[in-house]
Design a protein around this nucleic acid. Sequence first.
DNA 1: CAGCTCATGTAAAGGTCGTTCACATGAGCT
DNA 2: AGCTCATGTGAACGACCTTTACATGAGCTG
Lengths: 246, 246
Amino acid sequence: MSWRKEQRRAERGYHHGNLKEALLQAALGLIAEKGAAGFTFADAARMAGVSAAAPYRHFRDRDELLSSIAQRGFEQFESRLAAAWDDGRPDTVTAFERVGKAYLAFAREEPAFYNAMFESGVPVDANPALQAASESAFNIIRAAAERLAALTPPGTPRPPAMMMALHIWSMAHGVASLFSRGDAARRKLPMSPDELLEAEVLIYLRGLGFPTDRRPAGKSAEPPPVPPEASSGSGVPPGGPWGKPK
Amino acid sequence: MSWRKEQRRAERGYHHGNLKEALLQAALGLIAEKGAAGFTFADAARMAGVSAAAPYRHFRDRDELLSSIAQRGFEQFESRLAAAWDDGRPDTVTAFERVGKAYLAFAREEPAFYNAMFESGVPVDANPALQAASESAFNIIRAAAERLAALTPPGTPRPPAMMMALHIWSMAHGVASLFSRGDAARRKLPMSPDELLEAEVLIYLRGLGFPTDRRPAGKSAEPPPVPPEASSGSGVPPGGPWGKPK
DNA sequence: CAGCTCATGTAAAGGTCGTTCACATGAGCT
DNA sequence: AGCTCATGTGAACGACCTTTACATGAGCTG
């Protein structure tokens, strides 16, 4: 009958010892499998080998567990974006695009976190810690935009950095949501989500007056480590950001 | 005891007469209130005044109801986008921006549909009719992008229309998801979602070489009804798409 | 109009969940 | 050794989803 359960109990004793962490891990796995909507408090408890009531000793309710995961997600998100930004090295534009790629990579590689953060319906502003984590992550993008805005070529009006940050965020989030996750990824596209976002950002930056005449997928060494003082938007780059127009 | 129920029954007889439609309407209202995740099959049945089992005569399960709503949503979405596009009148760029606004307006004014379409976790590719409706809606954007791509100023490489369409879609979806709905709308922004998206699209179009020297919110009559043959990207428009940089 | 049929609705029941409550256990401190 | 309190258990409640056997009556057939 309750053979497994008894054995589990024998293995770990009456007290689990690290149930909170075990529940978070279990939930993460379940969300990755079935989405935040399909994830079940009871399932997480089962997976941790405890009764259905045990989780209530560590989380007020199911939403609080979800909220905790979202918060953790934002923290990891921030650290990945920060690593990608690398304080603007080797040059601002390159680093900026790396942030965009990191955004997509996170959405792809951490579907459970991404789901909890953006698709689970968790009200971000209800939990101050969660809200703070969310803002910290966004601040990476904001800081990057700030630096980028400071580089606008002379003669070009300087865009508000906040606006740029919001624009970039919306592009990354839009691409990730629509094309880079779960079923949505199955839409047949003429290019990969990464390429799509990279082209989008490059075109956008060019619209702001930035010289963006690098090859998108080119692996050649950084041609100019010092981007400022490049030619102002006089002509059109040889190849569009979408590769050979053939 | 079951006073209300008996009375209801007396009013409408044993057979409802139009239960399927009533369920769809009830579900729409419930989703608008509590989101697709919180919406309940039983609740919809109650609201229609029938037993909890009755809906199963019209929908295989809860997911099929949700899927039907999503499909209906895509159909209305398509017609609103089509009306906004108006076949490119009075000029392509103006009409294009109107489509972007229509996207946001739909997300704002039809939260229930938008939720079912993009946030309910309904697998779009599982239902052929739903998939077709979704593609029809996207095709409006695609067609608009096609026309816009054909207008690229001479000397500018012509971007693939499909890519443009995907870019625009991702921007609109990103802005709508992040800033224009529910709790997300509470984030304090320096500008409205509409303005944010409009500026984003304008900058993007300028990045493609389009002349976009119109005032964003300006209501002045269309200066040039014939956009082609405008100056190639020689200079920078007087005021940025984000208004006075003051 | 009588009678039949079948789409449509009902009640009841089984299974799962979220959540609460009274009670059990045992780790750590005194 | 004994106490305490955080942590876990089992039972129970109500809500939901879904299936099943049965009830109703609208519309057709003769």
